[in-house]
């Protein structure tokens, strides 16, 4: 079964790169520019995995994660955070909000696929 991935990032380049990487690996990719748009996509599409940026203008990544986790219907859906800085504080906040894992930006395509496989096992 083809897994559907939602990528939320305000940079078109990053969205494109993630999109190409995942399509090449056989995933179906949905894209959103910010948290709010992400929630709208989620409202009308089944999604198996979410990859989100943190710093976005309209709704930031942490708020987005909080919103998604407040909805029971996404209980089992892994959320990967993709960001330039992964500090302990950041991880701590991510864990508390319900993020599944994190990937450093710029990302290594192989590593991205590996992590996705790991969390969607």
């Amino acid at each position: 079964m083809t897994l559907q991935v939602l990528t939320v990032d305000d940079s078109p380049t990053v969205r494109e790169m993630i999109g190409d990487t995942l399509s090449a690996a056989g995933y179906n990719v949905l894209k959103a520019e910010d948290g709010e748009q992400g929630l709208r996509v989620l409202g009308s599409n089944p999604v198996d995995l979410i990859i989100t940026d943190i710093n976005m203008m309209v709704m930031g990544g942490f708020d987005f994660i909080r919103e998604v986790r407040s909805d029971d219907s996404y209980d089992g859906t892994p959320i990967l955070v993709m960001t330039t800085e992964i500090s302990e504080d950041f991880k701590q906040l991510g864990r508390e909000l319900g993020a599944t894992g994190w990937i450093a930006k710029p990302f290594d395509p192989d590593k991205l696929i590996k992590v996705i496989q790991q969390v969607t096992h």
Partner: peptide
Amino acid sequence: IFRRAIDPLAIIGE
């Protein structure tokens, strides 16, 4: 742990 959609089985699999 499940709230974060982490599956221990996936870790064991790894």
